[in-house]
């Protein structure tokens, strides 16, 4: 069996399990929707102000929703021993774990992209900016999943790692937040967004390439 088939098997298994536990993937999305709803309630539904802050709100809510969904990334596998079996595969751990990160992205990142028009609608984002929002999420969320996996792997041994994961990860999310919101803002004003999207893509590529090394090191460390 070659490595690519194995990679797909790991991915397919995770997706099958997720299909049996749909609420795990849905809850962070509902959370995101609710957080976004809270802002018009908190600051008033004036379309001008909503339009101004919409990119920031959506992206901050997306970061928080990502944090919320990280727990299921490795924890179940760690507790039931599946993760140590992955460590014992002939293929490098950094490689096989990317399949799990990809599964996580399909279940948490991609739905964010699909949900983005609804969020844009709720926050009165100009139609011109919708595609920029979707594109910024599409390019940024792979990095979120990869960085998130580092945090999740580092705190596997801890019973209550949740708040610590946020503490570790939020500073690392900042560049994504900056460039993504800037892209959406620019699109809303009819300005060029190529630079921001290109940087987002670059950060994602860099993160997705390098993060697996850190994830694998953290998982091995957790095997103690």
């Amino acid at each position: 069996m070659n490595s690519w088939q194995l990679w797909r098997s790991v991915l397919a298994k995770d997706l099958r399990i997720a299909a049996r536990r749909r609420s795990d993937a849905l809850n962070p999305l509902m959370f995101l929707l609710m957080v976004v709803t809270l802002f018009p309630l908190g600051i008033g539904p004036g379309p001008d102000i909503l339009e101004r802050i919409a990119p920031g709100i959506i992206w901050v809510a997306a970061l928080l929703a990502t944090l919320l969904g990280l727990d299921r990334l490795f924890k179940d596998d760690y507790n039931d021993g599946s993760l140590e079996q992955l460590c014992l595969l002939p293929e490098p751990l950094a490689y096989t774990l990317t399949a799990k990160v990809a599964a996580h992205w399909l279940l948490s990142g991609l739905p964010l992209v699909l949900l983005s028009p609804l969020l844009a609608l709720l926050l009165n984002l100009p139609v011109d900016a919708w595609w920029a929002l979707a594109l910024s999420l599409l390019l940024g969320t792979p990095a979120l999943s990869a960085l998130g996996a580092i945090g999740a792997a580092l705190t596997l041994q801890l019973q209550r790692g949740g708040s610590l994961v946020s503490l570790i990860l939020l500073p690392l999310f900042i560049p994504l937040l900056i460039f993504a919101t800037s892209a959406v803002e620019n699109a809303g004003m009819g300005l060029d967004v190529h630079a921001q999207l290109a940087i987002l893509a670059a950060i994602s590529v860099l993160t997705v390439t390098l993060a697996p090394l850190a994830i694998a090191a953290a998982v091995r460390m957790s095997m103690n």
């Binding site: 298994k13 099958r16 399990i17 049996r20 039931d80 021993g81 599946s82 140590e84 079996q85 002939p90």
Partner: peptide
């Protein structure tokens, strides 16, 4: 590692059985 893990079957006290499957 590669050769070794091809020849190894390890079953720990955590059984690696997925309750959802």
């Amino acid at each position: 590692r590669n050769e070794f893990h091809q020849q190894l079957l390890y079953i720990g006290h955590k059984a690696a059985v997925k309750p959802e499957l």
